[in-house]
Amino acid sequence: MKKIISMSLLFGIVLSLAVAAGNMEKEIPNTPSLSVLVYIAGVTAGSPPYEALAEGATEFASENQNITVKVYEAGFNQAQWEEQLTSLVATGEYDLVLTSNPSLPEICASIGKKFPKQKFVITDAFMEGNPQIRTYLFNQYEQSLYLGYLAGLVTTSNMSHANKDLKIGFIVAQEYPLLNKHMLPGFLDGARMVNPNIELDFRVIGNWFDANKTADLATSMKNAGVDVFAAIAGGAAQGLFKVAKEQGAYIVFHNSNEYKNAPGYVVGCGSMEQKKLTKEILKNALSGTIEYGAASIVGAQDGYLGFFADDPAYTNNLPETIRVQFNAFMDDIYKGKIAYTLPAL
């Protein structure tokens, strides 16, 4: 009996010390005019758009005195998001929740009902008419379209690793609506602007981290005649870089500059200006000029999507003819001259 008592006593002391210490640790009293929660619906690591969101927000906070930013990584379980975000909102500490994911508008709308004063800005998502929510959707159809066009140019070229099979590939970690409805069709449509006979080989890894499976998939696709790849696979994309380097294949990459991962094989990288958008949103938030309830689709024309054309890896590795053709296409994209119909989500 003595043992239990002494053990619980000891524990009690440790616990109370800890709690006491916690109370003593005074939180620095600062009253910024704007407190922002950056809610990452997943993890930043391995996801360039999320990284850009977090970086943009923290950078903005360091450049501006009267704003504080807390970045919270929520993990991949969608079902827990609502509860977590509610907990965070319930603290009342945040004037604005900034987040990014197509699934978030629903969750935010539902949380907003409980906390009518809470405001949300969501990028990479689309919802109109909720007075607490402002959304921005990147026109991923467009990005996929011009990357697909580049892929089409490469696969029909006589570059050393290109073959005659007219097959391009797309490896994804998991299927989700934006991918299925915007990116895949965009990619294929873009390629078919080069040659209407191009086929798309589309494969799923099943998770975001099994890079070795990606490598196996890429190998089998290569065996099936694919010579240009795209991937939305998070960390698992490493397997694709490996195959490209070792077996010779080309990669066009969405959303971020990844030339360095397989120099000479990554032939084009699209850009998604999440960081720029983040900073603009925060600037508007500071000045109070966010139009809640509105939703916009942002793309190349307004500078939120683009292409890393200045990178030496691009200029040195692609034949001049292809670059000329592609740059002309990109110009048209920037100018809005390429006609397409954005599929419904």
Partner: peptide, 24 residues
């Protein structure tokens, strides 16, 4: 349970910059 929780206390001192806040 008590021993396990004591282990948690030690760990948070090791892994967190604000251990007391973390523990609280």
């Amino acid at each position: 349970v008590l021993i396990a929780l004591s282990g948690v206390i030690i760990l948070s001192f090791l892994l967190s910059k604000t251990p007391s806040k973390t523990l609280r």
